[in-house]
């Protein structure tokens, strides 16, 4: 009973705390809320997935490091493994429309399809609001939000910062590891790691 009363309180508190750090999200703190449209124009909100574990993946199809993980099918495999366990996977493209890496909604949808990628949804964040609120710096940059809405992982897809697709085999997939911990109800062993890749193509100012 006591927990029941406490839960909204904690949520309220933690929300206020999250909001008070204008600067990027912190692991262990509530994940910043957001809404954005998918390529079909449908509005998707983090709030839609309350009670579920959510993975956020920063993506830019033109970035070689993103290609490293898609051409090697590593990202797709990670997506499928996650969504098979009822984890929500949101791929976020924060490339500003002024940058030539920017993809129109239809192009983004076509790319996702061509890659046989399996995100729950692809989100278009051309103004970079979501990216900035999470402090996403690179593509890929990975985040995990647990069922309570707490950010529990921020960092790289794996622990071998290179562009060499061959390294995927020998690298430790840090998202899989974080999800295993979260789904088992454990604290994430490596909650913050180095994200590597291209810079997120935000607007210049």
């Amino acid at each position: 009973m006591k927990l029941r009363i406490l839960a909204p309180l904690m949520l309220g508190l933690s929300f206020a705390a999250a909001a008070s750090f204008a600067a990027p999200a912190m692991v262990g703190q509530p994940a910043p809320m957001f809404s954005a449209t998918d390529p079909s124009g449908k509005l998707v909100s983090l709030a839609d997935f309350k009670g579920k574990t959510v993975v956020l993946e920063w993506v830019n199809p033109e970035c070689p490091y993103v290609r490293k993980h898609y051409d090697s099918a590593n990202m797709q495999a990670t997506q499928k493994a996650a969504t098979a366990k009822d984890v929500v996977w949101l791929s976020v493209n924060s490339t500003h429309p002024s940058h030539f890496d920017h993809k129109k909604p239809a192009e983004m949808a076509a790319w996702t399809k061509a890659q046989r990628a399996a995100p729950t949804a692809t989100l278009l964040d051309g103004d970079g609001k979501i990216g900035r609120s999470y402090g996403a710096r690179t593509t890929p940059h990975m985040y995990v939000v647990d069922a309570k809405g707490t950010l529990v992982y921020a960092g790289g897809i794996d622990d071998k910062p290179s562009a060499n697709p061959a390294d995927v085999k020998s690298a430790k997939n840090l998202v899989n590891a974080a999800l295993a911990d979260v789904l088992a109800g454990r604290a994430v062993a490596q909650p913050v790691t180095r994200a590597y890749g291209c810079s997120v193509k935000y607007a210049d100012s």
Binding site: L13, A16, A17, M26, G28, Q29, P191
Partner: peptide, 12 residues
């Protein structure tokens, strides 16, 4: 990991 719960209020 910034612990949630009671330290949150302090952080705020």
């Amino acid at each position: 990991v910034a612990p949630g719960g009671d330290t949150v209020a302090a952080a705020v």
